[in-house]
Each structure stands twice: as structure tokens, then as C-alpha cells.
């Protein structure tokens, strides 16, 4: 399969990239690592006249500021993020999530920022449509959904592995918007509409991810389930954060983030709230996992049933909570798997 024709721009700074975005507008697409964009272009489901490649922008190593916050450049390769000592020590869930993405080749090209902005996917949309013999779906600008033929919206899934981990870590994205810069929590980046998934302006670019300093008695754990060990997008992924009280028995703070089951990563707000102040025990964890599974509403999809997804959400959450509790209570809350 060949790429369609396009103009290639290679800015050497985010400033220049934003200027190009302003200049070319909708006709341009950003390529960070290209691992998602190029296949879509080959499938002809993305056909930008101009590709703005960010490969020439210098990438700085992850570093910790004076307050202990971890700064990771948006263009850090996923394999580098996964192997960075600083990331592994301070945000092991992020390292685990980065390591769970795609295959080794994809991690060697794909970037953290690119994975955060990953286009929502659908089995039927992310295909060549040359032999599909169907009209364009919502995400291709049409007026139907292959999955829910009578539906009135797109059901593509936000499949990023790093996003749930970043939500669990309460990370924020630094965004370059014209000449100004602003910071937004990663969780608030997403609209939930798979056709227009990001809340960012059309000329905004994520330049850095900032992970707040690790807190005591706190652990963040990432888990992923996928059809094959080697390469696939998640069937479900999950990140949980658990902060224990000083006696290391009760829950002081919790986050349960579930990805790959809907148009944006979901929080299990009720289950989290229910954990607060409670003494962590197997039945409490079991209850939280159960609440999560009934609270999260997975979208329709073709490769497995919603009831299967709920069961997986439950067992994945339970496993993640158990690990998080072990780590938070034993004091080494920040060691990666």
C-alpha cells in the first residue's frame, strides 16, 4: 500500500509548528511518530494535503523540577519513556503503559504526545475502505455507523494506553497555543466525541507532560488486556491510584480510570468515592471492582460483547487495586512492574 501524495513540513520548534498549523489549518495533520497517521493515510481514511512532521524538534530528556514534578517532553519515544530511569522511579505506571503500546517497532517510533492524542479507533473505520462496499461512516464524514446501523453517532474507542496511566497520575499537559502556553489536566483533554476527540484548539500542540511529584503511601498501577501479547490495541486497559492513610490501612484518595471501552477514557467516580475513608480489605477491593464494572458503560464493538467487557473491567480493576494496595502499604509505592 502506498501513501497518497502530500506536502511535508518539518518545523524545528513547536512555535514554528504552531505557525504552520495556523497557515495550513484543516488541510494539515501533525505527525509526531507517524505510527498511527501513516497507516490511516495508507488506508485513505486520512488524506491531509500537508503533513507537519515534528521529528526535527529537539527532544529533551525527562527531568524533575525543584518541586519534584516530572516533566516529560511530548516527543519522547514511547520506548525511551518506558526505559527512562526517572520515569520508572517516579511514575512507574507511565513506564508500564508506554511499554504496553503496540510492538517494539511502534514504540521505537511512536511518541508520548502522539499516544495521548491517538485518534479514536474502530475495527470498521481503521481499515482500507476500497473493498468494504459501504457508505462512509460518521468518522469518515458520512452519516452512519457500521457497528450500530441505526445509530446516530460514532462509536469509535479511545485506545491510548498512556492516557489512563496519566489520569491515574493526575498528570497535566502543557499546550502551546499561538504565542501563549497553558496547562490542562490530561483528563480534561477529551471531549468524548470520537469524531472530534480533543478539547484542544485546532492550532494547539501539546509540548510537555507534567507528572506531579510522587506522594507518600501512594501507588499508581496500570493494567492492559489485549487479544495477543505482541501487538494489539487494548481490549480494556485500566489505571488505578490508591493513597493510604498514615496508618496505611484506609483509603485517603483513589482514582480508577478505564480506557479503550468508549470515546474517551472513563473515571469510575462512584467506586472511587465509595473507597474514600474505608479500610482496604479484599472485600472492599472486590466491591470497588464490581462498582466500577457496573458504573462504566462500554460502547458497542464488534470483537467482544459488552457483558464480556464488563467482566474484564471488573477483573482488571481488581487486579490493579490489589497491586496498588500492596505497593502503597509496603512503602515502595513507586516501583515499576
Amino acid at each position: 500500500m502506498q501513501l497518497p501524495r502530500f506536502d511535508l513540513k518539518r518545523p524545528s520548534s513547536f512555535h514554528e509548528a504552531v505557525r504552520l498549523l495556523v497557515e495550513y489549518g484543516n488541510a494539515a495533520k501533525i505527525s509526531a511518530g507517524g505510527t498511527d497517521l501513516l497507516p490511516r493515510m495508507k488506508y485513505r481514511i486520512a488524506a491531509p494535503a500537508t503533513v507537519i512532521s515534528l521529528k526535527r524538534i529537539p527532544v529533551s530528556e525527562p527531568f524533575q523540577d525543584s518541586e519534584g514534578n516530572l516533566h516529560v517532553h511530548a516527543l519522547v519515544r514511547l520506548s525511551d519513556a518506558a526505559s527512562s530511569n526517572l520515569v520508572r522511579t517516579n511514575a512507574p505506571a507511565l513506564a508500564d503503559a508506554a511499554l504496553a503500546v503496540g510492538s517494539e517497532q511502534i514504540r521505537n517510533m511512536g511518541t508520548l504526545g502522539g499516544n495521548v492524542c491517538l485518534e479514536p479507533r474502530c475495527h470498521y473505520y481503521n481499515q482500507s475502505h476500497a473493498y468494504q462496499f459501504m457508505d462512509p461512516c460518521f468518522k469518515r464524514g458520512g452519516n452512519l455507523c457500521y457497528l450500530v446501523p441505526k445509530g446516530n453517532r460514532c462509536w469509535a474507542l479511545a485506545c491510548s494506553d498512556t492516557v489512563p496511566a496519566l489520569i491515574g497520575l493526575r498528570a497535566a499537559a502543557v499546550v502551546q497555543s499561538g504565542d501563549r502556553e497553558y496547562t490542562i489536566p490530561v483528563e480534561e483533554l477529551f471531549t468524548g466525541d470520537p469524531v472530534r476527540p480533543l478539547c484542544l484548539g485546532e492550532t494547539d500542540l501539546i509540548t510537555d507532560i507534567v507528572v506531579p511529584a510522587a506522594r507518600p503511601r501512594t501507588a499508581v498501577v496500570f493494567r492492559k488486556l489485549s487479544p495477543r501479547g505482541g501487538i494489539d490495541f487494548a481490549t480494556v486497559n485500566c489505571a488505578v491510584m490508591l493513597k493510604l492513610s498514615e496508618d496505611r490501612e484506609a483509603c485517603e484518595d483513589a482514582i480508577i480510570a478505564i480506557g479503550a471501552v468508549s470515546g474517551k477514557p472513563m473515571r469510575a467516580g462512584q467506586a472511587e468515592k465509595n473507597l474514600l475513608g474505608r479500610k482496604i480489605a479484599p472485600d472492599v477491593i472486590h466491591e470497588a471492582a464490581g462498582r466500577t464494572a457496573s458504573e462504566i458503560r462500554p460502547s458497542m464493538r464488534c470483537d467482544c460483547s459488552i457483558s464480556y467487557l464488563r467482566k474484564c473491567i471488573e477483573s482488571l480493576t481488581q487486579a490493579a487495586l490489589e497491586t496498588a494496595y500492596q505497593r502503597a502499604s509496603s512503602g515502595d509505592g513507586v516501583k515499576p512492574d
Binding site: 475495527h123 470498521y124 481503521n126 481499515q127 482500507s128 494489539d232 464488534c302 470483537d303
Partner: peptide
């Protein structure tokens, strides 16, 4: 419906 190797899952 599964006309590619992303949806037709062969073992890796």
C-alpha cells in the same frame, strides 16, 4: 467485516 490483519487475529 474482518478484511485485514488488525481484525483477523493470527498468532504472533
Amino acid at each position: 467485516l474482518t478484511a485485514d490483519l488488525a481484525t483477523f487475529i493470527i498468532p504472533a
